[in-house]
Amino acid sequence: MEQSVNESQLWEAFQAGDEEAYTRLYRLHVRAMYRYGLSLVPVSEAFVLDCIHDVFTEIWAKRQRLTVPDNVRYYLLKSLKTRILHLLKRQERPHQFVSQNDFDDLWAEPSAEELQAQEEESTHRQALVKRLIDQLPPRQQEAIRLRFVENLEYTQIAEMLSMNRQSAQNLVFRAIEKLRNWLTPSFLFFFHDFF
């Protein structure tokens, strides 16, 4: 919870025109945005970087009109996806020059504070999902754990639970739908690979 409070304060400082807070927001989220952007569609690294920079340019320009998001990463990932899909739909490609420094910044070592914040956020999310999984019926709990913790195929899950493959898939699907309904939207990006 402290992570979101700190990010809210950082966002408010950025909205007030604090360039250091703006830079920290960029550094905290650029790697995740970069990975997510590349996973969406087969586009060039330069295109994804341009879209990330477009997002940050736009939020700086509109900073005084923005509200404080419940989850900054969710907001930035969603903004990036919107930007990428918009440009692809219009079949435009930004042609700005991307310097080597732009790529170097992506792989700069995070500070101890950034690492601790990321670890706390990850721990909090894992604890939340574990609590939610514990609320599922026992068969759904088992199916979810076999699928996502043990990485078993549906055929193997079916054998473990003495059912056919389709029933195993249905069981996992129903469990995921329950988790989707319980999770806040801000957590869905974190688990989009599973859902």
Rank of each mutant, 00 (worst) to 15 (best):
S122K: 14
Q141E: 05
N164A: 05
V98W: 01
R131F: 02
A117K: 03
Q156T: 15
N164Q: 08
T123N: 15
A127F: 10
A112Q: 15
E120W: 08
L171N: 00
A108T: 08
A117I: 06
A108R: 15
E114H: 15
R131T: 10
A168H: 00
E109H: 11
A108Q: 15
Q118A: 14
H124W: 13
V129Q: 11
Q156R: 14
Q169C: 12
L152G: 08
Q166T: 02
H124E: 14
S162I: 00
Q135G: 06
L106S: 03
E114T: 12
L106Q: 01
F148N: 04
Q166H: 07
E150K: 04
E109M: 13
I144F: 07
N151Y: 11
E159R: 14
S162K: 11
K130F: 09
L115W: 05
R147M: 03
I157D: 04
H124L: 13
L132A: 05
L146I: 06
S122V: 01
Q100H: 03
H124P: 00
R131N: 11
R145E: 07
I133P: 02
Q141V: 07
L106G: 01
R125Y: 11
Q126W: 09
E119S: 12
E113G: 06
A108P: 04
L106R: 01
V172F: 05
Q141P: 05
V149T: 12
D105H: 09
S162R: 09
H124T: 10
A143Y: 01
T155P: 00
L128G: 09
Q126F: 08
D134N: 10
D104K: 12
S162F: 06
S122C: 10
Q169M: 14
E159V: 12
Q116R: 14
S99T: 14
L152M: 15
A143N: 05
I157N: 05
A127Y: 11
L171I: 06
Q100E: 07
Q116T: 04
Q140R: 11
N164L: 04
T155R: 15
V98H: 08
A117Y: 06
V129C: 10
A127P: 06
V149D: 10
V149Y: 07
E159Y: 08
T123F: 13
E142F: 00
L152W: 06
I157R: 04
P110H: 07
R147S: 08
